[in-house]
């Protein structure tokens, strides 16, 4: 089971410190919400974890290894960072290319298209997809090589209420089978029922990491707790 360790992570863009000495862990077999307002450094942190952005300091590892050092990374980690695909490629062609990259069975492309409800759109060019359909295709891509860890950046963007419920069930089902999920979002209401624990960041810094049950122990909901904690961190 996958374990994520973020230790003293720093990323600066000129005078702006996007991520400021951030440390947290994600325990195996849990769904962890990576929560914070827009610009809190969530996406930058995930990109550093996945080897796409080079940190100025600190480390980000999965099962003790940097992403770039992982053997067959797609078999270990499925990630959805942005719903960007070549608009002229069909959904099936996109997934077949990814399957070849992952050395996965090409027939998995059709399996995951069915799983995310895009079987009927398999041969349509992605340029004609709605944002919600692209999010589903992103999830299909992440699930293609049957990874044990999902890292998702704002996966509910563009999904309708039915899609959000579907996503929630998918993540809970994934965790129930022993998978680990780190899901970044600023839409707290959508994830409140899904996550086991929360990592809350603000201005690139860790505000708190705690189980959701602990954050809402006094009867407040997650959203209220979030606003209280982030306000406190500023003052």
């Amino acid at each position: 089971m996958a374990h994520i360790q973020i230790q003293g992570l720093v990323k600066r863009y000129g005078p702006v410190t996007a991520v400021d000495n951030l440390s947290f862990q994600v325990q195996p077999g849990t769904v962890t919400g990576f929560l914070g307002p827009n610009g809190a450094g969530k996406t930058t942190t995930l990109r550093m974890l996945l080897g796409l952005v080079t940190p100025d300091a600190g480390s980000a590892t999965i099962n003790g290894r940097r992403y770039a050092e992982m053997a067959e990374p797609l078999h270990q980690v499925g990630a959805v960072l942005e719903a960007s695909f070549h608009p002229g490629r069909t959904a099936r062609a996109h997934l077949r290319i990814q399957a070849l990259s992952a050395e996965a069975d090409p027939s998995r492309a059709d399996d995951v298209l069915s799983l995310v409800g895009l079987a009927d759109a398999a041969d349509r060019r992605v340029g004609g997809f709605s944002l919600g359909m692209r999010q589903r295709l992103g999830l299909a891509t992440a699930l293609l090589a049957d990874p044990k860890l999902l890292i998702l950046d704002e996966p509910a963007n563009g999904l309708d209420p039915e899609g959000i419920r579907w996503l929630r069930d998918l993540l809970r089902g994934f965790a129930a089978e022993g998978g680990t999920v780190l899901v970044s979002t600023h839409m707290l209401a959508e994830v409140a029922q899904t996550i086991d624990s929360a990592v809350i960041v603000h201005h690139g810094r860790l505000v708190v990491q705690a189980p959701v049950a602990e954050l809402t122990a006094d009867g407040t909901d997650l959203e209220t707790a979030f606003f209280h904690l982030t306000r406190e961190s500023v003052s």
Binding site: L50, G51, L52, Y67, A68, M70, P73, L74, V77, A79, L81, E82, S84, F85, Q98, S101, A102, T141
Partner: peptide
């Protein structure tokens, strides 16, 4: 992004 996630090298 997808390309380098699949092949970090």
């Amino acid at each position: 992004t997808l390309t380098y996630l699949a092949v970090p090298g």
